[in-house]
């Protein structure tokens, strides 16, 4: 399990990264935390001609609180984000999701942007980003653009990023009001990939749900936003009947995959149950005024 021979570049700026990515004729892979890329390289499932290591770029590091959003730069380590007071206080759903990501050893290397760009269907960060309506900033040597997270995930390990584009920043808008969040995941062992995972953020107004976002991952090809649930449950008090309805919708909505770890039918059952549990968690949190 040794990687194929590759060239290695270590740019010092985002601009230089984009320039290297734009060079044609060589298949390039960006190396952020490497917690997914390195095993792919070791198994020779990834065979890039050049690996561009973006770990040394200052512009790619850090977390900033803005008035209506929190900005996390691409190469910010997951462990740093998890421990970050801004994330903990203002993005509780992301904090919850991060605690499910890998192990302490992998979070110490794995990055926020790397996980998003990698687009593993069971990844927790993308799932939370979807529920939080995040926005991706991408740059190439010639242009930059913003991609709504809803348009970002295309299929397993494939995103809307062009081959010459690099993810620079992810921007999380901040919700207002009595916010509650819920994150539920079922995996085989504690830190395994999710068989299904659900992220929920909602806002209650005197016990009535005024805003709701539910996303579901792990079960299908990409994380998906369950807008049908959002429409159905808006303006309700999220009682048992509504939760059961949400569970049914989740169960029926998704296009689940089968593998040795769970059948598609089982994944749908799990997804339905986790949806109920996650919404209940978020509701109770909002009611308790913790958020």
């Amino acid at each position: 399990m040794k990687a194929v021979d590759f060239d290695y570049e270590q740019p010092r700026s985002v601009a230089e990264t984009c320039r290297l990515l734009g060079e044609t004729g060589r298949e390039a892979r960006l190396l952020a935390g490497g917690q997914t890329l390195a095993p792919l390289l070791a198994m020779r499932l990834a065979r890039p001609a050049v690996v561009i290591d973006i770990n040394r770029i200052e512009e790619f590091q850090g977390i900033d609180a803005e008035a209506e959003s929190v900005v996390i730069r691409a190469c910010t380590r997951q462990s740093r984000a998890l421990a970050d007071p801004i994330v903990q206080s203002r993005l509780p759903l992301l904090a919850k999701a991060l605690s499910f990501v890998g192990h302490v050893q992998t979070r110490n290397r794995g990055t926020i942007g790397g996980s998003l760009a990698n687009a593993d269907p069971s990844a927790e960060i993308g799932l939370a980003a979807l529920a939080l309506d995040a926005e991706i900033e991408a740059r190439s040597a010639t242009a930059s653009r913003r991609i709504p997270i809803g348009d970002f995930f295309i299929s397993p390990m494939v995103t809307a990023l062009a081959p010459d584009e690099c993810l620079t920043v992810v921007r999380f808008p901040l919700p207002q009001g009595a916010v509650g969040t819920g994150f539920r995941e079922a995996s085989i062992r504690r830190s395994d990939f999710a068989l299904a995972a659900v992220a929920v953020q909602l806002v209650l107004e005197r016990g009535v749900c005024r805003s709701l976002a539910v996303s579901l991952g792990g079960a299908g090809a990409t994380p998906v936003k369950l807008t049908a649930i959002e429409h159905k449950l808006l303006d309700t008090r999220l009682g048992d009947a509504e939760l059961a309805e949400a569970g049914r919708l989740a169960h029926d909505a998704i296009d689940a995959v089968s593998d040795i770890h769970a059948s598609a039918a089982h994944r749908r059952r799990i997804a339905g149950a986790l949806t109920m549990r996650a919404i209940a968690e978020a509701r109770d949190e909002a009611l308790a005024g913790r958020a």
Partner: peptide
Amino acid sequence: MTVAALGDLLATKD
């Protein structure tokens, strides 16, 4: 008795 095996077994009851 994996998650897959038990999950599908429990589903028969559902």
